[in-house]
Design a binder for these strands. Structure first.
Lengths: 125, 125
DNA sequence: CGGCATCCCCCACGATACTG
DNA sequence: CAGTATCGTGGGGGATGCCG
């Protein structure tokens, strides 16, 4: 069963926000959806090298439950499902922007490498 | 041995930032140190109800290794150790501010409760 | 006071296989 | 294509006890 966020009680706002973003891939899913607007399941998979099918769907479901992601199902053959950010999800991404800049600066500071596009999934421990 | 951040490679800045903040209490430690400036070990413990001694010291060491926290040891009897944020740690906290506001807003949205205590009580705007 | 050492548990996460 | 189902595991994290 998907657990999603524990929904409190929290120590403070950061605690509540981290709860929703906790999970190995959630912030990356946010990032991916933010930059592409709408993405199909397979597109998301390709955008997140190394993610397993199971974790991707699980995180997506939890984020949907938390009101961050919208899931649109098209009853066709072959199946087609589109994921996008809700208003709430967009606002979270905006709030994450400054953190992203900090992280980028830190990467330069410590000389960390960046995973570009479809470079090896194995790069990630 | 403490692992601290994996130090890359990363997908993006958010990835790098989340890596450093990942851990059940790290963001809360940041918050606590930010609002009190300098704190002794026992003070931090009291400010984070529920944290175990082991996790607190482990997270503090990792954050020190990541350059976020400064550890000042006084060779006295009884022992005295003071923790504070480095410049880098302060900048991370600044970057976390907007996320904290988002989380606070979300708490209202979903009707989550707040853990009352030193951390929450000292939060002011 | 401020740690470090140990034991142990749970579950987030991964791998694999199958389905509408 | 977009999922389910199931099993196994690593390590994050809790509890407890000892030490300078």
């Amino acid at each position: 069963m998907a657990t999603a966020a524990r929904r409190g009680p929290y120590f403070c706002g950061i605690d509540a926000a981290m709860d929703v973003v906790a999970g190995k891939w959630k912030s990356l899913i946010l990032w991916e959806l933010h930059h592409h607007g709408i993405r199909r399941f397979a597109e998301l998979r390709r955008g997140l090298p190394g993610v397993s099918e199971k974790m991707l769907i699980q995180h997506l479901r939890e984020m949907e439950e938390d009101g961050l992601v919208h899931r649109e199902v098209y009853r066709e053959v072959p199946p087609k499902v589109e994921y996008s950010l809700t208003e709430h999800g967009v606002s979270l991404n905006v709030a994450l922007a400054s953190l992203g800049e900090w992280g980028t600066a830190r990467m330069g500071r410590i000389g960390a490498e960046k995973i570009s596009g479809d470079v090896a999934a194995t790069a990630r421990r």
